[in-house]
Amino acid sequence: MVFIGMDHGTTGISFCLMSHDGEIIDIFKIDREDSKSGKVSAIEELSKRVDLDSVKLMAITYAMGDGFSKILPIDKVEDRGILSINGAGKVTGGGTSVFSELENSDIPTIMIPGLHKGSDSLDKLFNAAYSHQASPEKVSISYNAFKETGWKNYIVADISSNSVDILIEDSKIKGAIDACLGAMGIVHGPLDLEMLRDIDEGRRGANECFSHAGAIKIAGIDGKVANMKDQLLENYRNGDEKAKLAIDTLIMTVAMEIAGLDVVCENEIEGIVLTGSIGSATEPFNFEDEINKYFKGKYELKVISKESGAIGAAQIAQDVFNGADNILGIEVDFE
């Protein structure tokens, strides 16, 4: 008996294979470009690692997930569960090809929705403020955080190519701050006045601005998403002042966002969960130590795997298969 979780991430599509007793069998990632070009098949890669007939359920995330609001079987979700592919960062087509493979397979599959204004489970004030709060993998990340900590009131900070912070109150997701709204990630970030003027005056498109609004804009780095992160970290190691300023600024914006979510939580926060390739980083800087300089020991901090999106999705698959009727307040409709 095997459960699978898929995280449709910025730099690649990650899979977690989990046994019936919750032990991780394997975690692997498919490069978006390799998938799009046909060099790699998701089904073939899964078949190398597990007998597909033993898979009881797979839970997947895809793009913004703003076209539905319940956890549903894949055949009940229309248009891949999205309203539009636009405005979501660079589109490569790699995630779409993997989705098509899985959709046409015989693997029982459910889809996890994103957090958006159509999500009945979210706080009405968050929904009134923001049309979109987080993509589906933030739900699975938050679930993995719950499984790792047992906390009922906590904030998840997922820091990588983009930064999204999620507030969980009384074991339900209350709301989140999306990548284009608040804290910087390495690549993506909020649009400031200069960028809005560039858009209005036709110098750059909104998506292009969003995809250059993270720490890289401070460090003066451009290129492919995965390469930009590596270049920024290498520059930091080499003592580059702009790279240090970029990372320090990113950390400050994340601390500000977490503090804001704490203020609107009606309960006392039990802790902060850090994840993502930057949120879980220990070198060339220790993210936990650096952000705790702002918190001054106020919160218990817990670092979980940077693959928490795929792990949490597998845990959702297992619990839905075993009869869970909601995941962090999100209704499950699985028959």
Rank of each mutant, 00 (worst) to 15 (best):
I4E: 00
I4W: 02
G5C: 08
M6P: 05
T10F: 08
T11Q: 14
L17I: 15
M18H: 08
E23G: 10
I27L: 06
F28L: 07
K29L: 10
D31A: 11
R32H: 15
R32A: 08
D34R: 13
S35F: 09
K36T: 00
R49C: 01
R49L: 01
L52G: 06
L52M: 13
D53K: 11
M58A: 14
A59Y: 00
A63R: 10
G67I: 08
K70I: 00
K70N: 08
P73W: 07
I74W: 12
E78H: 10
R80Q: 02
G81I: 09
G89S: 09
E101W: 12
E103N: 13
P108L: 13
T109L: 15
I110F: 01
L115I: 06
L115W: 06
G118F: 02
D120H: 04
D120C: 02
S121M: 03
L122Q: 02
L122K: 03
L125G: 00
F126K: 09
A128P: 03
S131K: 13
A134S: 13
A145W: 03
F146Y: 09
G150Y: 03
W151G: 06
Y154N: 11
N162F: 07
D165A: 10
I166C: 07
L167I: 14
L167K: 12
K174D: 15
A176V: 07
A176C: 11
A179S: 12
A179R: 10
A183T: 07
M184Q: 13
H188C: 02
G189E: 05
L191W: 00
I199M: 07
R203A: 08
H212T: 00
A215D: 12
I216H: 09
K217M: 14
A219G: 07
A219P: 13
G220I: 01
A226L: 08
N227R: 08
M228V: 07
Y236R: 04
G239L: 04
G239S: 13
D240E: 11
I247W: 12
L250S: 05
V254D: 14
V254L: 09
M256S: 01
E257P: 00
G260A: 02
L261T: 02
L261A: 06
D262E: 13
V264A: 04
E266M: 01
G271F: 03
I272Y: 06
G279D: 07
S280C: 00
T282K: 15
F285R: 02
E288K: 13
E290G: 00
I291G: 05
I291L: 01
N292K: 04
F295L: 09
F295S: 04
E307A: 13
Q315G: 00
I316D: 03
Q318H: 06
Q318D: 12
Q318F: 15
V320R: 03
V320D: 11
N322Y: 04
A324G: 05
E331M: 01
E331Q: 08
